[in-house]
């Protein structure tokens, strides 16, 4: 009883604090600050017609590298914890619907993921959503079988390769133009075309493969930690 009252009190104070700022809120009607600069110069600077991708991969590419590191450390900790403390309950047989869906859907899911990853500079999408969708295809395949995945060396290899590619593409900019992850090292081409925007599509591809292999590694670690039936 006292606990419920306390919870209600905390939430009420928070809600009151949130409502108290409403009169001071003004809807923005014009761009300002960094957003204004990105909208004004983004296309000219990077050749990417998708300004969000221009910010993520080119202007704030270093932050994205940090994000990939955060994701990497989370995936590594999950795999480490699960290998030290096995869950010890094997997989159950998939139901009829899951087993048959897992034979049909992974291919179209993969196609969508490749589209998202390679068209990041042209349409909504990018390495993170593309990689997550790729990993969901892997998860579906795994859920559709009753066996435990064998110890694969492909996932860690892909992860290391894509991470190194990201870093080297960034260093290429440092070497030639004196700026980490400058995407103009190979010229920005014709904006709006698939092969354009310098190294943005390549970096997106590297991020996509890295995210996909990390999530797939987490799923496989959960499955392996259960052991065989």
């Amino acid at each position: 009883m006292i606990r419920t009252l306390f919870v209600l009190l905390v939430l009420l104070v928070l809600a009151a604090a949130a409502t108290s700022v409403i009169p001071h809120l003004k809807m923005r009607t014009e761009l300002d600050g960094a957003g204004l600069e990105y909208a004004r110069r983004g296309l000219e600077d990077t050749g990417s017609i998708n300004l969000v991708t221009a910010v993520i991969v080119a202007y704030r590419g270093l932050d994205t590298l940090g994000e990939v590191v955060v994701l990497f450390s989370a995936a590594t900790s999950v795999m480490l914890i699960l290998s030290l403390f096995p869950l010890g309950r094997g997989p159950t047989d998939p139901s009829f619907i899951v087993a048959h869906t897992a034979r049909v859907l992974p291919a179209p899911i993969m196609l969508l993921a490749v589209y998202f990853t390679t068209h990041s500079h042209l349409s909504p999408g990018g390495g993170f959503p593309g990689g997550t969708i790729m990993a969901s295809a892997f998860l579906l395949v795994m859920l559709g079988s009753s066996s435990t995945p064998a110890g694969s060396k492909i996932l860690p290899a892909l992860e290391a390769l894509s991470g190194t590619t990201f870093g080297l593409l960034g260093l290429w900019g440092t070497m030639t133009l004196g700026q980490f992850l400058n995407n103009r090292v190979i010229g920005i081409g014709n904006p709006g075309y698939l092969v354009s925007a310098g190294i943005i599509p390549l970096v997106s591809l590297a991020i996509g493969v890295k995210v996909a292999s990390e999530f797939s590694g987490i799923f496989a670690a959960f499955r392996k930690s259960g052991g065989n039936r």
Binding site: R28, A39, E44, L122
Partner: peptide, 26 residues
């Protein structure tokens, strides 16, 4: 904030929403 045929690059400043929060939310 995607400057395709519907949004000419010259009018971007007055036609698109702020791309920065969308990049940060990632």
């Amino acid at each position: 904030p995607i400057l395709n045929g519907d949004v000419p690059a010259a009018e971007a400043v007055s036609a698109v929403v702020d791309p920065l929060p969308q990049a940060l939310v990632l």
